[in-house]
Design a binder for these strands. Structure first.
Lengths: 337, 337
DNA sequence: ATAGGTTGTCGAAGCGCTTCGACTCCGTCC
DNA sequence: GGACGGAGTCGAAGCGCTTCGACAACCTAT
């Protein structure tokens, strides 16, 4: 392994000079800088991460806690993780991957050991056990998601309330009166993961204003669960003509079942999905959808974190405005029979 | 931040003693050990990662390179990443997430800086630019995937050749004679990611032995692409009664299209998918499938890596035997018309 | 011409840990 | 009873880097 000292010797300068060339924290004459840079190239020098972390008290690592469960939004999670990693690299940071498995202990371990300079938490619950620890530590952090109490925290998330409202507006505008929300798996609600409730709240309150009747049913993904759920929906509200689907893995089953029942989309029934654009365009009907901006969320989280690391940061809640894209799965409500 | 020295002082011993309590590398009397452990608890001590890495020359971090692209198998990738992280933690290692973005440079950076003790590479191409670097370094590594030349490398992967053969056998046994393979997106083949070709080779050679006729068509996921592909298949081979689908995002479109054409699954047409079990059971028909054992692959990779880190490891290629689960999407070939 | 500021470089201290050799006890064995 | 060896502990060196203060050299403004 090549060390700083070896580079310094090769370039005929002191170790500290090489260090300053690398960090740019003091001015260095052009000639010296060039010589040092050449030596670095020539010897193939890479600063030792451990030594650097020890001396500077910064590891240049961001910890990313992803959920262990795979009961929801897997592609979204993946996309966020990749966006976080890519943006972090662009700022000179690496990403340490943590699963929820260790729970709050992971936070303690990482902050205590100086393994990472900062954290990004995904899959935040309304009353998350990790939050008190985050508030206690001086280590910057950003949540992707929205807990009940956001005081002293920085959060980035899609504005799910507005998302719900947007869905209601679109369906109301098309003349629908009875709509059904196919929600996430019951486990997601039990876990109090906020976003599902927020969507529903937004949708319900806007629906009230617009005179829509809303029926909400949680639903595990998959064909069988969807089949049961759908039967119950039409049983209870035969006049339902609009669907809002929040659970990605319920989308395709729903479309298949509607088809099988002879209900045409969008002539008889309109469907809006809350999902990544890719899913919306790949479905068997091109879906009108509100996109989940995974990239933007990941990038936003990193940028806020970097700002905080550089002391420019502020605690705030950034809600990304939802965008509804009209495609082929929504249309005017059918004339009443 | 609490340091070793503070713990030592609190427990009334020297710093080295505390270190030995922590590492167990020298014997410590029960009494001393207990006192030290109590002090650690009481003070909430966590060893500083940087200092430890510097002094011991090991970071206890494994780097995991995941593909940047999301054109294939996203859930599988995610599941592998989670399995890797979980198993690594069980062995006392953390996981650093790298995207393919940096390419070979990432390998250089990580090995050069001592950021990680070892690497796991996913999405390995047949002639991957990172492989020469891996062969050159002393740092242990494991590939998930199979390059063209495996000499000096350790690889873990599903035996895709056997997977293809298994699909052929199952369909042949059921009396099918004309089968179609719906492959990955063309981009996957252009990238030479091995597994797609291996599946096809295995399937073709077994088919030859069994007298099956095979038509292979790459296919982007999604409804529109699948629609085109399917039309061409039946155009060219009207007697096709068996499908093997390798592209996850083509499964549901295929089923929908067959239904629309009035071809019943499994009465008229049999479908085998190569996909995670979860996808197979959640589809609109419970799919006969060969599972992609993501968990097992992730865990296997970590275990091999740990073995190498401890000096017990050997370079070898571990191919996981495929398992075919019969569900509701395959049945006897229909009698010839 | 001289005081004062800038610029570029160096030496040394130290970050918190691991590890090696050395030392002290104490029990064992001839 | 003295040599021997193992168990338990300590002190010190050093891992490779950053950073602070010091200093020489030079430039400018009075």
């Amino acid at each position: 392994m090549v060390t700083l000292a070896e580079v310094a010797q090769h370039a005929g300068v002191s170790a500290s000079t090489v260090s300053y060339v690398l960090s740019g924290k003091r001015s260095i004459s052009a000639g010296t800088r060039e010589r040092v840079e050449q030596s670095i190239q020539l010897l193939g020098y890479h600063p030792n991460a451990g030594a650097r972390a020890l001396a500077s008290n910064r590891s240049n690592i961001i910890a990313l806690m992803i959920p262990l469960r795979t009961d929801m939004y897997v592609p979204v999670m993946m996309e966020i993780a990749i966006a976080v990693t890519t943006s972090a690299r662009a700022h000179g940071y690496d990403v340490l991957l943590l699963t929820g498995e260790e729970g709050p202990d992971a936070v303690r371990r990482v902050t205590g050991s100086g393994l990472a300079d900062a954290m990004i938490l995904m899959d935040v619950e309304l009353d998350d056990g990790r939050l008190p620890l985050l508030r206690d530590t001086t280590q910057p952090s950003v949540l992707i998601g929205l807990p009940a109490d956001t005081s002293g925290l920085t959060c980035v998330d899609l504005d799910f309330g507005a998302t719900g409202a947007l869905c209601a507006e679109h369906l109301a505008m098309l003349g629908h009166r009875d709509i059904a929300v196919i929600g996430e798996a019951p486990a997601v609600y039990e876990r109090h993961t906020g976003f599902a409730e927020r969507t529903l709240d937004g949708l319900r309150s806007r629906s009230r204003e617009l005179g829509l009747r809303v029926l909400h049913r949680p639903c595990e993904g998959g064909f069988d669960a969807m089949s049961l759920t759908l039967a119950r929906v039409f049983d209870e509200r035969p006049g339902t003509t609009g669907f809002v689907v929040q659970n990605e893995s319920a989308v395709e089953p729903l479309l298949a079942l509607l088809r099988r029942q002879g209900r045409a989309v969008p002539e008889d029934v309109s469907v809006i999905a809350i999902c990544p654009d890719q899913v919306a365009v790949q479905a068997s009907v091109r879906l009108t959808s509100v996109a989940i901006p995974a990239q933007e969320m990941g990038r936003g989280a990193v940028e806020h974190l970097i700002a905080k690391l550089e002391g420019r940061g502020t605690d705030d809640v950034v809600l990304i405005a939802p965008e509804l894209t009209v495609r082929a799965s929504t249309g005017p409500a059918p004339a009443a029979p």
